[in-house]
Amino acid sequence: MLDGVHLTLLIGPGVPVPAPAAVLDALDAVQVSSGGDRGGFQLSFQVGKTSLIQNVLLPAGYFDPILTRVIIVATVRGLPHVLADGVVTRQEIAPSNEPGKSTLTITGEDLSLYMDLVEMPFMRFPAMPIIARVYAILAKYAALGIAPIAIPPVVPDIPNPLEEIPHQHGTDREYLKELAAGCGYVFYIEPGPAPGANIAYFGPDIRIPAPQPALNVNMDAYTNVESLSFSLDGMAKKVVVMTVMDPVSRRAPIPVPIPNLSVLRPPMGLRIPVPSRLEFPGDVAHLNPSDAANKALGIMFAAQDSITGSGSLDVMRYGHVLRARMMVGVRGAGVSYDGLYYVNSVTHDIKRGQYKQSFNLSRDGLVSNTPVVLP
């Protein structure tokens, strides 16, 4: 790999162990995606007729789907970063007529895959609030090194067992996503901070406020990105009007406008685009007051950003590994687009002698509300 970049690959059923030298020598490319609904990875190997992978490891089940766990760690300038911790889901081999040019591709997803394998339609949670249900479900996966971090809904809701008994729909992951969507939260698994450890997060989509080193564009010798572009979507902002029944008679409809501003993400732009759409959701009139309040907060938590950006960088020139679900500054894009942004997703592309990243950014409006970008 590159000077200053060391890649560690752990593979195995149950507890992954360092990959043998023959596997590392055959490794041609690594791609890891993070920051989305579910993280994933892909490993590409160059194999030949006499290779250990082709003749021994594959027949012995070394890369078998579901059973094989993979951990990818990139150490940049002495600082380790756990890029992926997941399970193999697919293997593909492409034989070639040229010696040593056959390719084996291993694809996998993060450990939330294990939560999506078995449906639990008969699971009941009598008198258990949402937060208790979340911890009860995630406790089953502690053996995989998954530590839960769950934040209770803003408006508590303890179901009366004489009126209703909550029951699970579908798999554990589907039910956790359903609970999160009901109160405007997100659910995902983040690998790290140590190899073999993972964080299962259930809560509002809060980005870590400490900004990462800035992305510089059009700054001559100080430029540290290969490409960067921005776009402003004038249709992104909207006003949602919820119609709820009055809590006394349950007959009179009350319209409640919900602004398209996230109460959890601090504003980063001075000029917020005017909302261009008006929506009336039709599935809220029957909700009780606590569910309606959580629904309204969920709409505010999920407010869309008007400005999106995308680009790519070379990690060695940037000097750091850009992480998703954090903040980063931008310099050199002009007065309208300089400033702080949220990093929504990152894709890592690692090959011999190369470590690049592609990324997606977003924020709420034009013109930064901070005088300078640090660091």
Results as ranks from 00 to 15, higher is better:
residue 242 M to Y: 00
residue 110 D to S: 09
residue 293 A to E: 00
residue 273 P to Q: 00
residue 93 I to Q: 12
residue 45 F to W: 09
residue 207 R to L: 15
residue 216 N to M: 14
residue 92 E to I: 06
residue 190 E to K: 15
residue 178 E to M: 11
residue 13 P to R: 11
residue 253 P to C: 01
residue 272 I to K: 08
residue 327 M to P: 13
residue 1 M to F: 13
residue 29 A to Q: 11
residue 27 L to W: 04
residue 186 V to L: 14
residue 343 V to M: 02
residue 107 T to Y: 13
residue 155 V to E: 11
residue 138 L to P: 06
residue 149 I to S: 12
residue 322 L to M: 14
residue 88 V to M: 04
residue 265 R to Q: 06
residue 204 P to T: 10
residue 116 D to K: 02
residue 125 F to K: 00
residue 356 K to M: 12
residue 94 A to P: 03
residue 71 I to N: 11
residue 359 F to K: 12
residue 69 R to M: 08
residue 296 A to V: 08
residue 315 V to I: 09
residue 216 N to E: 12
residue 252 A to F: 07
residue 362 S to K: 00
residue 283 D to A: 06
residue 67 L to I: 15
residue 37 D to I: 06
residue 367 V to Q: 13
residue 355 Y to S: 03
residue 216 N to Q: 13
residue 214 A to K: 10
residue 308 T to Q: 01
residue 249 S to F: 04
residue 278 L to R: 10
residue 373 V to N: 05
residue 1 M to P: 14
residue 52 L to I: 14
residue 331 R to F: 05
residue 198 N to F: 09
residue 286 H to D: 15
residue 84 A to C: 01
residue 290 S to Y: 08
residue 255 P to T: 06
residue 258 I to H: 02
residue 200 A to E: 15
residue 171 T to Y: 01
residue 156 P to F: 04
residue 297 L to E: 04
residue 256 V to L: 01
residue 342 Y to A: 13
residue 222 Y to A: 15
residue 159 P to D: 03
residue 90 R to S: 06
residue 43 L to E: 09
residue 185 Y to G: 02
residue 100 G to F: 00
residue 112 S to D: 01
residue 209 P to L: 09
residue 257 P to R: 00
residue 358 S to C: 07
residue 31 Q to G: 13
residue 33 S to D: 13
residue 14 G to L: 04
residue 233 D to H: 08
residue 330 V to Y: 03
residue 335 V to W: 00
residue 320 H to W: 02
residue 272 I to Y: 04
residue 21 A to G: 05
residue 336 S to D: 12
residue 340 L to C: 09
residue 65 P to R: 06
residue 28 D to H: 13
residue 267 P to T: 07
residue 191 P to V: 01
residue 86 G to C: 06
residue 216 N to P: 09
residue 213 P to Y: 06
residue 141 Y to E: 08
residue 324 A to D: 13
residue 353 G to K: 02
residue 239 V to S: 03
residue 48 G to C: 01
residue 344 N to C: 08
residue 371 P to Y: 01
residue 300 M to Y: 10
residue 33 S to N: 08
residue 226 E to A: 15
residue 93 I to G: 09
residue 153 P to R: 02
residue 223 T to C: 04
residue 259 P to D: 00
residue 344 N to E: 11
residue 69 R to W: 02
residue 327 M to W: 05
residue 319 G to Q: 11
residue 327 M to N: 15
residue 329 G to M: 01
residue 348 H to Y: 07
residue 346 V to A: 09
residue 302 A to H: 15
residue 203 G to Q: 06
residue 24 L to D: 00
residue 35 G to F: 00
residue 223 T to M: 05
residue 217 V to D: 10
residue 374 L to G: 12
residue 361 L to E: 04
residue 234 G to R: 12
residue 94 A to H: 03
residue 86 G to W: 06
residue 17 V to L: 07
residue 189 I to K: 13
residue 161 P to T: 07
residue 337 Y to S: 07
residue 20 P to C: 00
residue 275 P to D: 13
residue 325 R to L: 14
residue 269 G to K: 01
residue 351 K to S: 14
residue 363 R to Q: 02
residue 344 N to F: 01
residue 275 P to H: 11
residue 270 L to I: 11
residue 3 D to W: 07
residue 257 P to V: 00
residue 69 R to K: 10
residue 71 I to E: 14
residue 280 F to A: 10
residue 127 A to M: 11
residue 203 G to P: 09
residue 185 Y to A: 10
residue 4 G to H: 04
residue 54 Q to V: 05
